[in-house]
Nucleic acid binder design. Structure first.
Length: 879
DNA sequence: CTAGGGTTAG
């Protein structure tokens, strides 16, 4: 079924205005034949496509050469010259002639020729001649002028004359409408259409085709449907071109079903009908249907043309059907389509999207003309494969080759920089944008902000954001999401506040802002956003619902999280994973396991992240056997290869359970190189189980892998301190000092009346500092009375016990808890968050408070949640 | 008489 490229001939049976002429633009041939019949044999051998040279023609046709007739017929001469297509001579004669002798129809001839040659310059010369000679611009001449101007692309001038002559000929109206449509000014075209109807100008098939195109482009579904009814009344409903426009219109407004019905009922389908339907399927996301229809098209004997191939290649790209793509490639080459840039560009893109990068490169290499689209497609191809450096290199090469990037190129290359996290390359592109004055384009700005956010520079992103003349919802979401992901939750929340004053957030905004509430553990702000979600019906957005569950988990309310979780009708992998991880964080290991099993029963396949969550849940609840079981299920049943995170969970599980030697052996047997977290998990196990010797051995690995991380030094120091090895503690402190490292200062915060209060360790500058101190002292002595002893070893200072106690009293989580007791209404749960792990002494005190004061305390540390109630913590010592 | 309907990249 090999197919030749069909040239699109003007068609068809149903057309009233059959295009019988050989076509205006190509009419030289016929005119030449006519001319060669005249007695000038020496011109006969001239190729019909050759332009007549000025000199040659002037020899024969100059009126000055005429011998007897002094009153030369200038009009005839000019018409003759026009017949031959010699515009230069025609103009010259026009200006040589006595103005009064030139007839209107002569001007029409020259204008017609100017239009055919698309020579605005010559057309204007005729126009100014008309003006200076006083020829009245009647309806016929006016029409010709309009035709010339519109055809030559000067819509403004054409419109001026059009308005003056108030012609009621439908042709001229169609001409104007088409002119506006071509430049994308659909609104003006529609306005003309309305005027036409008001004036009672009788519309024809061309009019409705054009107006349907406009309404399709404007997305005016209602108006388009009205035209549909209107054209049926006019009896235009059986015209092939009209139905084709209707099909295209319905496909643009995404009414594929209506389009298909029209297509099926169309008796004389031509290649355009097929192409419209196929490309419409592809554009509406039904690529398979497009391919199916394509096969039907070939069966019914209609040859594909360039447009068909382009659509089908797109479909192949969408479906990843590279074999059909290759077949179309072959047909295209046979039909010589590979000389067409559009074909090659789509072909290149098809190979790239199907993951056949070398195929894309081969197409690129073989192309003789590479446009900006070609380069952009190849850059996108590299970026898609994660080869960002190569993508950026191509961008510079393209520039050197003299092909100017457009906004698509810029956004694509920015995306490559973003994926690469290469701020330097991104800044280079930013400079290029400034140099080429593209920084006011909204797409470019959004891509720039995204790049900066992904490269971690929110400062630069903000600078772009502030300078944007117009911001859309994507601009806001990019910034808010950027702040959220770069651990700047306060900035995210503050910008969200600015945003709601200017525009309505969408699902993406909400899904971006919830993690910020979560990271601050700001339940009040989270609830505000929840209210917003309910009021605006965003709970049905899967991403939003998932983020909401996650927020409640991280704000310390797993019960509410579960309630919402149960309300999500279709739970995806993320929904399940968030809940499982949530249970893990709160130490509800068994709930996590139940939920994990429910997920598998629901037919949702766990991925590596859900396995991290379940293993983590097991380790935080000390469920050793279950943890092992899941580690095996993961590999045996689910084909998930364990990564560092999974190994870390297992090490953590073994180490916490006191199986330190086994954990050490396990690390040594790992098929991948262990990192600091793996060794760190074992180190923390050593501290819990007081194995100083192993701790020292393990610490060596850790310090080598992450010498800057002070947390590990503190961990070892704590191990020494618990063993009362103060000399070693001192040495370690000196080591930290020598390396210029500082212990990360402890910081806790608590939300009271929607305001977040932050406490730093040892800081007494809070307005209520005195009251807090008094309360803590009172609690401390009460604790002693009831037999609690302060865990002074955590003070890490080798001093007398009173000093240590004082130091411990300054711990930020105690300050925050005390502030909560003093300022929250009685009975309200006290929710405190801390940036580091909770200290042992604070943990003891929280237990005590929960018992004596009967207050529930939820403490979130860097690792997990602690729920204190009636003197017990849910962690049962696993932290 | 002259014109119209389907075609590539983020």
């Amino acid at each position: 079924m090999m197919i030749l490229m069909a040239t699109i001939l003007p068609s068809k049976l149903s057309l009233p205005l059959n295009n019988k002429k050989s076509g205006g633009k190509h009419s030289f041939q016929s005119k030449y034949v006519f001319f060669s019949n005249k007695p000038y044999p020496k011109f006969a051998p001239l190729s019909p496509n050759l332009h007549f040279s000025y000199d040659t023609v002037s020899v024969i046709t100059s009126p000055a050469q005429s011998k007897d007739n002094k009153i030369t017929d200038w009009n005839t001469k000019i018409n003759e010259v026009c017949e031959m297509g010699n515009i230069d001579k025609a103009i010259e004669l026009l200006y040589m002639s006595p103005k009064t002798e030139i007839e209107s129809r002569t001007c029409c001839s020259i204008l017609q020729l100017s239009a055919e040659l698309k020579s605005l310059q010559d057309g204007k010369k005729v126009h100014s001649f008309i003006c200076s000679s006083g020829i009245s611009i009647d309806s016929v001449l006016g029409s010709k002028l309009v035709f010339m101007y519109v055809t030559c692309g000067d819509l403004r001038e054409g419109r001026l004359i059009f308005d003056k002559i108030r012609n009621e000929k439908v042709f001229l109206w169609n001409l104007m409408m088409n002119g506006y449509t071509k430049i994308g000014d659909f609104k003006e075209s529609v306005s003309l259409f309305r005027q036409m109807l008001d004036l009672g100008v009788e519309v024809n098939s061309h009019t409705v085709s054009c107006i349907l195109k406009c309404f399709a482009a404007l997305g005016s579904a209602k108006e388009g449907k009205w035209v549909h009814g209107f054209l049926l009344k006019l009896g235009l409903g059986s015209y092939n071109a009209v139905v084709n426009s209707l099909i295209a219109f319905y496909l643009k407004i995404r009414r594929v079903d209506v389009a298909r019905k029209l297509f099926d009922e169309l008796s004389d389908r031509d290649v355009i009908s097929w192409n419209s339907m196929i490309s419409g399927y592809v554009a509406n996301g039904f690529s398979e249907k497009g391919v199916e229809l394509f096969k039907k098209m070939l069966y019914s004997g209609v040859d594909m043309d360039l447009a068909t191939m382009v659509s089908i290649l797109q479909a192949c790209a969408n479906c990843g059907d590279v074999s059909l793509g290759r077949a179309v490639h072959g047909s295209g080459v046979k039909a010589c389509a590979h000389w067409k840039t559009t074909f090659c560009n789509t072909l290149l893109d098809m190979y790239a999207k199907c993951g056949v990068l070398d195929g894309a490169i081969r197409v690129f290499d073989l192309m003789s003309v590479r446009t900006v689209v070609t380069w952009t497609s190849l850059i996108a191809a590299y970026a898609r494969e994660g080869l960002s450096d190569e993508a950026i290199r191509l961008f510079h090469e393209m520039d050197r080759e003299g092909v100017s990037p457009d906004i698509f190129t810029i956004t694509t290359v920015l995306h490559a920089c973003a994926c690469n996290g290469s701020l330097e390359n991104g800044k280079d592109v930013h400079n290029y944008i400034r140099e080429n004055d593209m920084q006011s384009n909204i797409f470019v700005c959004n891509a720039l902000m995204d790049m900066y956010a992904k490269c971690g520079s929110m400062e630069d992103a903000k600078a772009v954001f502030l300078e944007m003349p117009v911001k859309d919802i994507i601009s806001w979401n990019t910034m808010i999401g950027g702040y959220s992901k770069n651990s700047l939750p306060n900035e995210a929340l503050s910008l969200f506040g600015d945003m709601v004053l200017e525009m309505k957030p969408d699902g993406t905004t909400l899904a971006c802002i919830l993690p910020a509430c979560a990271s601050l553990a700001s339940l009040d702000r989270g609830k505000e956003v929840h209210g917003h979600i309910l009021r605006n019906g965003f709970f049905s957005d899967q991403q939003v619902a998932n983020a909401l569950v996650d927020m409640y988990v991280k704000c310390g309310v797993p019960v509410l999280a579960r309630l919402l979780f149960d309300m999500i009708p279709t739970k995806d992998l993320i929904t399940w994973t968030v809940m499982i991880a949530g249970y893990g964080m709160h130490g509800f290991g068994n709930n996590a396991i139940t939920t994990f099993n429910e997920m598998r029963q629901a037919g949702v396949e766990p991925d590596e992240v859900s396995f991290i969550s379940i293993l983590y849940a097991c380790s935080h609840s000390g469920l050793l056997d279950e943890g092992w079981r899941f580690f095996n299920i993961m590999q045996d049943e689910c084909n998930v290869k364990p990564k560092l995170e999974h190994y870390a969970c297992i090490v953590d599980l073994l180490a916490r359970s006191g199986k330190l030697a086994m954990a050490y052996k396990f690390i040594k047997s790992m098929p991948i190189e262990p990192d600091a977290t793996i060794w760190g998990a074992l180190l923390s196990g050593c501290r819990i189980h007081h194995d100083v010797k192993l701790a020292e051995k393990v610490a060596e690995h850790v310090f080598e892998l992450e010498p800057e991380n002070t947390g590990y030094y503190v961990l070892l120091a704590n191990t020494y301190a618990e063993a009362e090895k103060w000399e070693e503690v001192k040495k370690l402190r000196q080591k930290i000092g020598r390396r210029g490292l500082k212990k990360n200062p402890g910081c806790s915060w608590i939300e009271v009346k929607s305001k977040v209060h932050i406490f730093l360790a040892g800081n007494s500058s809070h307005p209520q500092a005195k009251k807090i101190e008094v309360l803590l002292k009172r609690l401390r002595s009460k604790m002693k009375e009831e037999g609690y002893f302060p865990k002074t070893r955590y003070a890490l200072i080798n001093a007398d016990s009173l000093q240590k106690e004082t130091a411990l009293c300054g711990h930020s989580e105690k300050l925050a808890m005390a502030f909560g007791i003093l300022n929250l209404p009685p009975g309200r749960t006290i929710r405190v968050s801390k940036n580091l792990r909770v200290c042992g002494d604070c943990h003891e005190m929280a237990k005590f408070i929960s018992k004596t004061l009967g207050r529930e305390i939820v403490l979130r540390d860097s690792n997990r949640f602690h729920h204190f109630k009636d003197g017990v913590c849910c962690c049962r010592g696993f932290w």
